[in-house]
Design a protein around this nucleic acid. Structure first.
Lengths: 210, 210
DNA sequence: AATCTTATTGACCAGAGTGGTCATTCTTAT
DNA sequence: ATAAGAATGACCACTCTGGTCAATAAGATT
């Protein structure tokens, strides 16, 4: 398993990233079947022959991406401090890590979203396995160690969490487009998202708490 | 303009709907260029010849859909009482109307979403026109006549509105899939969405108000 | 400089799918 | 029985598909 894709891995990392991003983009947009290898090589700036040297065929390329993205996700989760007891601080942390990933692999999340809707017979088994692996590897620690005592008790907790998550996800989605412009724009967005956090704290924290 | 598509319009309405839905679905999924007329006729259960009898070519079909969807939207907005002063009541109303549309044309909203990202040269001008028409026809009355006096004044109003909208949209999206199962499921979903409204009211209304 | 090894290329392939046509068949009403 | 209209799907030229491989280029070794 380790020596596989060795050709690809001995490429300059910049070229690797170009190929990965082009592939993620094309598969995310069009799904496995309709994704075009011709489009991928055009976007990546390599030749047809090269792509099929690195990966023997389309399926292998896709499986490689699945594997790669799984590793990326695991790395994200490894970077988060799961002992942080404050819910908002933790969500914020998670958001920041995801943001870092997004800058390097802008299409990784869209690719994952597409993967979950994929139903090409060629790759479906591998996708099921990925899902199982992700769940098994304990990514569902989700809200472990969170200190809920700060929160109002007269509001259904699950719905509360949903509202917070939906707000942050929608906010993120809305600003995903505009952030490739300036590098520094990250700061503005971050502070705006903090304002949303403040509002939600006002809503859901008990009176006394911050 | 009125007699155009007369062939299509003299079909049984059930057949018309089958064709419309199949087309909306295919264009929503794949965009103008990659949408397959073969797939459309397969989904609609008609022959190739028929489709190209009703609409001379792919472009005409697409333009017809644009026009059709525009009318549907305008009808939605015509059904809403824009004098209802309570923000939540009005959003709820709008949601209900959209829900009705969704049951009849499940892919209409996805189609519209896809339209706004479309960039096939063939249809881009028509899309620009649609956008202008929709804006021009005063659909931006949005929050007209809303009574804001019930709301807290220590929270940024725009952000507040965003949180409410994002919550309802995310909630809707999450439940879109499961509602073709039972017909009666609509009631459950509706009452659950009302619970979210109640929470948001607790958050954003002034203390005294309901 | 010459030779050998490895990486990269793109013209090329058979097959599938494309939007669109139209002679033929099927329905329906007289 | 007949005429008119509606519906069909085999067919067309064309594009694009995933994948191959002889030819070339680049690097390494002597």
């Amino acid at each position: 398993m380790a020596v596989i894709y060795s050709q690809f891995h001995s490429l300059e990392s910049e070229k690797q990233e170009r190929i990965i991003n082009a592939s993620l983009k094309e598969f995310a947009r069009n799904g496995y079947d309709k994704a075009s290898t011709n489009e991928i090589i055009k976007q990546a700036g390599i030749s047809k022959g090269s792509l099929f040297n690195y990966f023997n065929n389309k399926k292998e390329l896709y499986l490689f991406l699945l594997d790669y993205v799984e590793k990326v996700i695991k790395k994200i989760y490894a970077e988060v401090d799961w002992n942080e007891p404050d819910f908002f601080t933790r969500i914020r942390q998670l958001g920041l890590v995801k943001f870092k990933i997004y800058k390097k692999f802008p299409h990784a999340f869209n690719f994952l979203k597409a993967v979950s809707h994929e139903d090409a017979a060629d790759v479906k088994p591998a996708i099921s396995k990925l899902k199982q692996d992700l769940i098994a590897s304990g990514l569902e620690k989700g809200y472990q160690n969170i200190d809920w005592s700060k929160f109002r008790e007269d509001i259904d907790r699950e719905k509360m969490i949903n509202i917070i998550n939906w707000t942050m996800l929608s906010f993120a989605e809305q600003h995903m487009n505009e952030l490739d412009s300036i590098e520094d724009v990250g700061r503005e967005i971050l502070s705006e998202s903090d304002e949303y956090f403040d509002i939600l704290k006002q809503c859901f924290y008990k009176k006394g708490e911050q």
